[in-house]
Amino acid sequence: MAMLEVNGLRKVYPGFTLQDLSFSVEPGTVMGLIGRNGAGKTTTLKALLNLIRTDGGEIRYFGLPLQAHEKEIKQRIGYACGAVDYYPRRKIADLLAVTRRFYPQWDDALCSRYLRAFSIDPGKTPRELSEGMRVKLNLVPALSHHAELLLLDEPTSGLDPVSRAELLDVFAFLRERGVAILYSTHITSDLEKCADAITYLHQGCLRASAPMAEFLASQAAAGFGTTLEEIMVNREKEDLHETFGA
């Protein structure tokens, strides 16, 4: 059974439409969500977290529809959207003490381990941390309650190369234990190191959703390049040329 199934997801904004998006994330896999700015990645993640109303389609986690099982589903998944930008002047220990009560599976020892691993002092406030450290802090609650699926929006942006490598190791460790990860990023080289599948969005439409090897092979055969960055750049350039007739 898929950890996450999205079928025909649709969201209409004035000037932008996310159209008929369908993909699924299997247990123990990492799926990269790619696309240029404004392609619909964040809208997709917001829809997956029920932060926005959808205008069509269905989202199911663990076989359960999101709308009817929002609370139970959110207890089984973890999510982090960039850096912590809430309660900047509250102690991290206080924030975690409040957050932990919402998760029956919360593991204090695991939380302490991640705080140590990320070199985060729980006695500090988020505003005392650098941008990169606040990104790491956002990951701590997501990783501390034995989530079966992680939804991450730009989890490695703002991190130094060593921290990024550490985080990718954490992802690999979690994947081995059956945790599925869906994350959007602009740093495509990170995805090449850890992703099993790619979902590529373009102007709100699904351009491709396939296992990594299959995706790379098909794009290479079409002449778009052999790396994710080349593929994205060449495909977006092609669209630009079509638009302006260059």
Binding site: L49, E70, E72, I73, K74, Q75, Y86, R89
Partner: peptide, 17 residues
């Protein structure tokens, strides 16, 4: 100013709650 609503919505709760 502290993005309280967003923090709360990202917890495992229903929006209406």
């Amino acid at each position: 100013e502290t993005n309280d609503v967003l923090y709360t919505l990202l917890l495992p709760v229903r929006k209406r709650d």
